[in-house]
């Protein structure tokens, strides 16, 4: 485990709609109260162990997000919170956004030669506060990961439509009766 003690989190909004940000704030209020688990929001990236990324990373935010990302000391964990951060969300291919954390890592690699750090993807739009807590617990390996990729391949011998249905290459079965309808009748 990378971090044995309290996890300090820097929250980086990279163009999110506020939904995820409010849910991040929400986990510090009485109902969820994650400070009981030693998790704390900090104001400066230099104090943080983890970055909570929200938003699809807009073009305007990109250079600023890179700067904030590099200011977090190693080793670090990235929590990609919400569908925008995980995969670009509903705007994933729009002209004004980069399209999620994976594209962000690509740019980091190309421009600055930085390898992607440990990343926890927390999908949801926005994720429930409990889903964020679960993601943090997963980062600390306190819970087992439930979500696994599933691939189903259909096994079947039939692959041509001709055996499925009687072939329809000849026209004689289908000739319809044409009735002439006169206008005004």
């Amino acid at each position: 485990m990378m971090f044995k003690k309290s996890l300090w989190v820097f929250h980086l909004n990279s163009g999110s709609c506020n939904g995820c940000d409010i849910e991040v704030l929400n986990i510090f209020t009485p109902k969820q109260d994650v400070e009981r688990l030693g998790i704390k929001l900090v104001g400066s990236p230099r104090h943080a162990d983890a970055i909570a990324f929200t938003g699809p990373i807009t073009r305007e935010c990109l250079p600023k997000a890179i700067e904030a990302f590099m200011a977090v000391p190693e080793p670090k964990i990235v929590l990609a919170i919400g569908s925008c951060a995980c995969g670009g969300g509903i705007w994933f291919d729009s002209y004004a956004v980069i399209g999620g954390i994976k594209e962000f890592y690509k740019i980091l690699k190309e421009k600055h030669g930085i390898e992607p750090p440990t990343t926890i993807y927390i999908p949801g739009c926005p994720p429930k506060p409990e889903a964020i807590i679960y993601g943090v617990a997963l980062a600390r390996k306190a819970v087992e990961q439930k979500q696994k990729s599933e691939i189903f391949v259909e096994e079947s011998d039939i692959d041509d439509a001709a055996t499925l249905f009687k072939e329809a290459t000849s026209t004689r079965h289908f000739i319809p009766k044409i009735e002439v309808i006169k206008r005004g009748e």
């Binding site: 995980c86 995969g87 994976k102 440990t118 990343t119 926890i120 993807y121 927390i122 999908p123 949801g124 994720p127 429930k128 409990e130 889903a131 679960y134 993601g135 997963l138 819970v143 990961q145 439930k146 979500q147 696994k148 990729s149 599933e150 691939i151 189903f152 391949v153 259909e154």
Partner: peptide, 16 residues
């Protein structure tokens, strides 16, 4: 709702 995953590949469901 507990969908957090350590890699992006785990978030795919593929049906062929």
């Amino acid at each position: 709702f507990e969908l957090a995953a350590a890699s992006e590949e785990d978030l795919h469901q593929v049906v062929k």
